[in-house]
Design a protein around this nucleic acid. Structure first.
Length: 134
DNA sequence: GCCAACGTTGGC
DNA sequence: GCCAACGTTGGC
């Protein structure tokens, strides 16, 4: 079991829309580092969903239901997509300031490499973030 | 709206 | 292969 965090601008694709649709194709990624992480995702991996720009918070938990396949939004062969489904909506979201304020989360790539849109979390990082929603 | 960070492109 | 220029992202 692996743990991930994916980022989306709510004006582009929001958690609310994800929840309504009940499933998302995580496509359109055009960054090699993010692409490489998408390719490592396995079925049932846990994925935290973060809103960048507006909100700047983790709103919910998703899981992987389809592992990487060719991205249908481009004819270029090098890009991939995965399918995610919502699992849980957090009553308490986790704001970026809270993440920054927690010393144990200082190595989370969201902080260190803010432009990356798909990133791995260690189990410890995931557990701490998840606890912060309770 | 600004700017830092960073990825990509293209000239050499 | 290097690096300047440029575009994009995202926090503030």
């Amino acid at each position: 079991m692996n743990f991930w965090l994916v980022k989306s601008e709510p004006t582009t694709y929001s958690w609310q829309l994800f929840k309504e649709q009940g499933k998302a194709k995580w496509d359109g990624v055009r960054n090699y580092q993010a692409r490489n992480y998408l390719m490592q995702m396995k079925k049932n991996d846990q994925v935290l969903f973060y809103h960048s720009n507006i909100g700047k918070e983790i709103l919910g938990l998703a899981k992987v239901i389809s592992e990487a396949y060719p991205d249908p939004t481009t004819p270029e062969k090098q890009w991939v997509a995965v399918d995610l489904v919502p699992v849980e909506e957090f009553k308490k979201t986790v704001k970026i300031e809270q993440i920054k304020a927690e010393i144990k989360l200082k190595d989370v790539l969201l902080i260190k490499q803010s432009r990356l849109s798909v990133m791995p979390l260690t189990k410890e990082q995931f557990d701490i973030l998840y606890q912060m929603t309770k």
